[in-house]
Computed example of a mutant assay.
Amino acid sequence: MDVAFVTNVVYPFVTGGAQKRVHEIGTRLADRGHDVTIYGRHYWDGPAEMAHEGMTLRAVADAADLYEEEGRRSITEAIDFSVRLLPPFARQVDDHDVVVASVFPYFPVLSSRLATLLRDVPLVTVWHEVWGADYWDDYLGRLALGGKVVERLTAAVPQHPIAVSGVTADKLARMGMGPRRADIEVVPNGIDVDQIRSAPLPDTSHRRDGEPGFDVLFAGRLIADKRVDVLLDAFDRVAEAHDATLGIVGEGPELDHLRERAAGLSNADRVTLLGFLDEYEDVLGQMRAARVFASASTREGFGISCAEAMAADCTVVAADHPDSAASEVVGDGGFLVDPTVEAFARALDDALSGARPPTPPTTRAERFDWDAVATRAEERYRRAVDGEVDDPDVETGATN
């Protein structure tokens, strides 16, 4: 197959879950003999079109800032990329057998659909999240109507949809304007199990306690939905009894608020905010060195950090919430609890006392290895190229 990926940002030049998925699947498809081209912004050094790890990178727009001052993704960036994408992509789309476009943002999907409209080239979409009305209201306020319309319009265009989780697939189907649930295949995000297990342990020479790692770790973007404040308060209740430490990896708009909150804890000296770690392997090393990975996040399109932590053999404590797919990832390889201070404190107490889940975390993590994920994605792309229609009586892609 000749596969074209559309993503405004390209890994590893800009890090992030959606672009990493394209990279990991794309490189594996290239290794298997497929032709792979990525259309994106010119974030890399070198010419606008160049070979990279067996794939072709093709820049259709210059690099641009992805976030506004308020910490929100830039709408103007997404529109600009989509406008710049359409002319060159429409000229070259016939060179490809299938187009794979990431959702979010939405506008590049619409441009991809316009480019394929009069061609016999199927469009596969990858839905990482579905926001819905309530979240748009919180995110954009008076501009929320525009976001709702564009999301629903994107769902309505003819496409071969993939969702990264059952939660996301269900939300997409419930919109009513897009595909049926039976037509949405779940192909989860993935992890490199071998890379995680071999990641170098962190340098702890600067640590006051001299311990190889934190007893409890969180890693993720510091936004309100991650509920790091719940984790802080829960940890404070059990820290002294277990002589435990907490490390928080990440940055985001909640950073200053969380610093203040951590400073006010009874066990403030046991909490370290490490900020953003430039090297991905440094995050993995922190996971390998930790005993427990905890996330009270109530909104996860997938929950990649939980999968990574399980591969690192952490005992995972995660929120059980209808808007989070973390429960699909963790399953019986960790502990799922209500996202409240009381519930998390009890779960942390149990985990720090040595409790382990029914299924070893490392065993659970293996189903999300990128090799297995790439095979499922490849099969989906092939069916789109062959024009096959999914059997509505067949359940697709449950990850539990």
Results as ranks from 00 to 15, higher is better:
37 T>D: 07
50 M>A: 14
20 K>F: 05
391 D>P: 03
336 L>Y: 02
394 V>N: 09
226 K>T: 03
160 H>L: 15
200 P>H: 13
25 I>W: 04
23 H>A: 13
278 D>Q: 15
253 P>R: 13
181 R>W: 01
172 L>P: 02
326 A>W: 00
277 L>A: 05
330 V>Y: 00
15 T>V: 14
237 R>T: 08
120 D>M: 09
394 V>Q: 14
31 D>G: 08
146 G>T: 13
51 A>D: 09
89 F>G: 07
271 V>L: 04
100 V>G: 01
362 T>G: 15
120 D>F: 07
357 P>G: 05
171 K>H: 15
54 G>Y: 07
10 V>R: 11
346 R>H: 14
19 Q>S: 13
269 D>G: 05
2 D>C: 12
342 E>T: 08
395 E>D: 14
160 H>T: 12
285 G>T: 06
358 P>S: 10
273 L>V: 12
25 I>F: 04
186 V>P: 00
360 P>N: 12
146 G>M: 13
386 D>N: 13
362 T>N: 15
56 T>W: 04
234 A>I: 05
281 E>C: 11
264 G>V: 11
175 M>Y: 09
372 A>L: 11
204 T>D: 11
321 H>W: 08
91 R>Q: 14
32 R>Q: 11
61 A>W: 04
298 T>F: 07
157 V>R: 10
335 F>P: 03
154 T>C: 02
133 A>C: 14
64 A>Y: 12
315 T>R: 05
255 L>P: 07
173 A>T: 07
37 T>M: 08
368 F>G: 04
70 E>D: 10
134 D>R: 12
297 S>R: 00
186 V>L: 02
193 V>C: 06
143 L>G: 11
81 F>G: 01
236 D>A: 06
377 A>T: 14
182 A>D: 09
159 Q>N: 04
307 A>P: 03
399 T>Y: 07
338 D>W: 08
195 Q>K: 15
324 S>T: 06
263 A>W: 04
82 S>W: 06
366 E>W: 06
123 L>V: 08
63 A>H: 10
236 D>E: 02
393 D>S: 14
357 P>S: 04
236 D>C: 05
370 W>Y: 10
148 K>F: 06
103 V>T: 11
251 E>T: 11
174 R>M: 04
49 E>K: 15
321 H>K: 08
37 T>S: 09
368 F>K: 03
43 Y>F: 10
96 H>Q: 11
323 D>I: 09
326 A>Y: 00
164 V>N: 00
377 A>V: 11
65 D>Y: 09
61 A>M: 15
334 G>A: 08
254 E>L: 02
